[in-house]
Design a protein around this nucleic acid. Structure first.
Lengths: 205, 205, 205, 205
DNA sequence: CATGAATGAGCATTCATTCAT
DNA sequence: GATGAATGAATGCTCATTCAT
């Protein structure tokens, strides 16, 4: 096998994303997953502890990927505001690149009670503390509005992006009928984030 | 019976909110609901078609309540920005008043596949079109930033409030440890919404 | 009320025959019966002990009616063979007159486990001993074939008539498509019963 | 495994026949079947779609077996009358060989509404058309009474045999107390069928 | 590692019957 | 007698998981 050939674990995860997105987590059977993946029924349990574990693995991999992206940005010499915009941009790009994955992240992962376990919530929360850290850094450098709470701002910014994408997930026709996803992203990047984060003094300049 | 005495349907719904919030929709049994409500097992099915129907009824009642609130506000002689702030304020007040209900709305309702049925999504979406209408009205009156898309702004504003409350739901300790809910609400009302919605010219004033 | 006006008990029984025939005993609800009868839900239990009791009452009434008919025939000055033919004729006429009732007797009554209770089987069996009695009487008078067992002959004769009608019940189209019920009855009365019951010597006469 | 070892499907069917005969279809639980068969609860559903499907499979297998028997007889160089007698003989032998099976066929199968579905009724009816075919063949060869309708004769003959056996099923004591099954069969074979089917001219000979 | 037959725990719902009015 | 809201016992089936091969 070449090193680029996906391993069975990855094959199973991708097949799961496809069937979870198509039929929903509870409506699909482990048999559906094994068929889609082209592996034997029992083989799923060689790579995952349980059906839940597959979905949680999808969540963890994807969320860690987002955290890594944030880490990389933090190591670049880029302004805090620009980093935040790039994170939002990345979130939208993720949806564009693999809508099934985001659909699963938004609609299926929260169905798992384990998602609300401390461990998984800590991982989830790590994104918000990271985002808040960037904002706090910007405030310290007098680049961002010091009156806003960094952690609340992190909730607000992610909530805005997530809820916007959510509408496209729920209503796949929305884009075609009303508003291109790219335009929605630009709305958030151009009008919402700058006005919200920029220092008040700027207004009075 | 006095007119204020809650009917059995209401008793069952309130009991369901309590057990859904405590144990989760899928983990609780219909027996748990009937015991909590103090009614006979079979009585649930005199008032609701199924367990699913109970949860969907909670959703519909609550969401319709929010829509009614918006309607009432629209009939008052209040500026668009003020109305939007009052809607956000109402959403936070709702959580304060009945955290179990909001927990159910946020974590349990989306678990139901029927929530994604056209009918229920139309009801859900009605809130966003309503909010967008208020914003469009404000733009027409030169009171709000004309560059922002009303519908995207509606997604952004609700997403910001919803995701903030969501963190309090997931982490009940958050408030005690870090940030009072009231302060979070004020952050959104004072810094996020005005800066996002106010006309650009104001900045240059 | 005039004496010819049917009482509620009779109304309920007739309504039950209609819905049992249309939907089957197990598929119909007591609510269906009360609606068809135009009486209140709970009123059924003023006239019958249970749903089972309604069906068993239909059976008993109908079977007793058949037994009474046989008794009346036995009191007339008619030859045994003629009496048997008149009984068979009566069974066919019954189906002609009230197909729903016979459908219930054939397809629904045997579904009740109580039908196989001693008491009900004794009633059922009484018809066969009665029929056997007529045959034995004919044999004693040298009018019928003495080699045949009266009780087995009773089984044979009733089975022949019952199984023929049964086909019309199962296949309501049979008559229209293939064979009028009247012709089937005549086949049994003209060719089967005489040849089976008449004395052997007649053949050599 | 040896080739004579019964498969699990067969084991489950035989166990079902036993418990259906003993407790009745509706009174027995699927758990009773799995215990009697000595297989796991869920294994029933690997071999059968449902509890109903088990009973219908018993019916279909048994009825097809009867049809095959008739086919084999038709391929032998045997007179029509003799073939009919052998079919009746086979029906009685069946009961002798496996009374539980016949009890289930007579008392339980007709309880299933699906038994009255077109597909199952067509299978059922195939026996009568087969029997009628033999009679018609005998009439064509001047061996049987041409005045009788073959299809009605088929109903009459099967009804006679079936109703006789039915009494032994309902009253297991009947044989011991009154009449050996063998004698009942002989009554039908010796006195009923020949006199009914033989040509009229014989009578006048 | 791969397979898939075997396993059995878990639960919403129906509906005949009751009984307070 | 009439009513119909309230009752709660009773059970077939699914499907994630295991494990012998």
């Amino acid at each position: 096998m070449s090193s680029t050939e996906p391993g069975k674990r990855e094959i199973i995860m991708n097949a799961s994303i496809k069937v979870f997105a198509a039929k929903g987590y509870h409506s699909c059977r482990t048999l559906d997953i094994s068929k889609e993946a082209g592996v034997a029924y029992g083989s799923l349990y060689q790579y995952f502890k349980s059906k839940d574990d597959i979905l949680l693995s999808i969540y963890r991999d994807n969320w860690n990927f987002l955290l890594q992206r944030m880490d990389k940005l933090n190591n670049l010499d880029v302004s805090p505001a620009s980093r935040i915009i790039q994170i939002v941009d990345f979130i939208f790009a993720n949806y564009d690149h693999n809508p099934d994955l985001i659909k699963v992240m938004i609609t299926e992962v929260p169905k798992l009670s384990q998602f609300y376990d401390q461990e998984n919530q800590e991982l989830y929360y790590r994104f918000f503390t990271g985002l808040a850290g960037i904002i706090a850094e910007g405030q310290k450098k007098d680049l961002l509005n010091k009156e806003i709470s960094p952690i609340i701002a992190a909730f607000v910014i992610y909530g805005a992006a997530d809820n916007t994408i959510r509408q496209y997930v729920f209503n796949p026709d929305f884009e075609r009928l009303h508003f291109p996803l790219e335009a929605a992203k630009n709305q958030i990047i151009k009008f919402f984030i700058p006005s919200y984060l920029e220092p008040i003094k700027k207004k009075n300049a």
